[in-house]
Nucleic acid binder design. Structure first.
Lengths: 235, 235
DNA sequence: CTCGCTCATTGATAACATCATTGCGCGGTG
DNA sequence: CACCGCGCAATGATGTTATCAATGAGCGAG
């Protein structure tokens, strides 16, 4: 894919705004953007349109491009989420997203238990087995364990039969990855987490929706507990 | 607000794509769009960029603008949701969204019970009281009852203290409204629904998170049951 | 069958016209 | 003299058009 010119501009501005470096009410102009990034007004305009579509800015004659307050942002858009997970609000964003996971993943697991294909059920069981092996070997904070963890949650979300849950699969993947790379992951995972992952896999494999939901709720509760312990609420 | 020129173009194309009128793989050209809507290439391009940002299309030199398969769409974006709630996939979209509500609203209610302001707690109790009055008077399918219903759910989502839940408040409002206007609302609401709404309000008022969560789960279960009865699953 | 050419179509820039918004200054008034 | 309202001009977005560069899909030649 050719690196489209407005891409870097959009990215830079998006980061600045979501990081709070450009606070609500701050004003930009197309000429200013064009001059700073060395691009034409047209490119600056396209980046601005995208930002407008994300609810980050509003533009009007004479006023230029004004940054909107954060409650106007499309906080569910993957781009916005990615930007915020990079900036200073990382911990807070991780907490919000984990809360969303807490709401969605148990139900998604229940749906998957009802609708997953045989291939998916098999893969889940295999993943859970490997996770236990790695976890008991002290590789609970390694990349391989992380990949399995992500794969399992992604499989569950995408097999839920609900496109809205599927759309959240990438977000969940980023959150899981963020937790590991923030160093919140113990080298030896809590046995309760390994048990719960196995329980989810076998519940989905046998089509037991209630058990899958309950086991997944245990997983997410543990995640949230670890997060709170590592970074106490600052609200 | 001045009717920006690319707005109608974006809207029309978005509807066509989400409605399936332009299937995945269909190709457009900027000149074609410009000619059809009587706008310049620049405006057509801006509309296209927005569509690209929503994951509906991809564009490249020589290939024109190609419609992407639906699993690339930003199905959580409010614009996409609104379009799909209008088109032929309305019932299916309503089911998906209700499932999302089922996941999110109970937890949001629990959070609200922990963090809502005194003013919000009072308003919730008042709303529940009015809802019962209207419901028992046979106004359960009226606009006034609908407005109260929406207001209550919106208040809860926005008082959850989680911006991601807040962002879903509009979506929930549209879903509730859609249910009424699809004629799935009984003139006399189920007494269980009125009871549950009152239970949520009083649980939040007293700060009982568990009770709020449980009562909200009852509400959403009832909603989903009504939806399934009115439009049996076609998956 | 494969390589390479061609041309349609997007990507990007520039110059220009238009128009809404806003802030400032002018004049009138209490 | 202070204050308020009105209109005007500066500003910057919106939209159009023209032009060139880049690219890649399809086709034709070898």
């Amino acid at each position: 894919m050719p690196p489209v010119l407005h891409g870097p501009v959009l990215d830079a501005l998006g980061r600045r705004i979501t990081a709070g470096e450009l606070p609500a009410g701050a004003a930009l102009t197309l000429d200013g953007i064009g001059a700073e990034f060395g691009v034409s007004r047209t490119v600056a305009r396209e980046a601005m349109r995208l930002l407008e579509g994300l609810g980050l800015v509003r533009s009007g004659p004479r006023v230029g491009i004004v940054v909107l307050p954060h409650d106007a942002w499309n906080v569910l858009d993957p781009k916005v989420i990615a930007w915020r997970l990079d900036g200073p609000g990382r911990a807070s964003q991780l907490r919000s997203l984990t809360e969303l996971r807490q709401a969605v993943e148990p139900l998604a697991a229940a749906c998957a238990a009802r609708g997953a294909t045989a291939a998916v059920r098999d893969e889940l069981v295999g993943i859970a087995r490997q996770m236990r092996k790695l976890g008991e070997a002290g590789e609970g904070d390694g990349e391989e364990f992380l990949a399995l963890d992500i794969r399992m949650h992604e499989l569950l979300m995408r097999s839920s039969g609900n496109e809205l849950f599927s759309a959240l699969a990438d977000v969940v993947a980023v959150v899981i990855s963020g937790r590991t790379h923030l160093g919140l992951m113990p080298a030896y995972p809590e046995p309760v987490a390994l048990d719960a992952h196995e329980a989810v896999a076998s519940a989905v494999a046998t089509g037991d929706a209630d058990a899958a939901e309950e086991a997944m709720a245990r997983i997410v509760r543990e995640v949230r507990g670890a997060l709170d312990a590592g970074a106490p609420p600052t609200r």
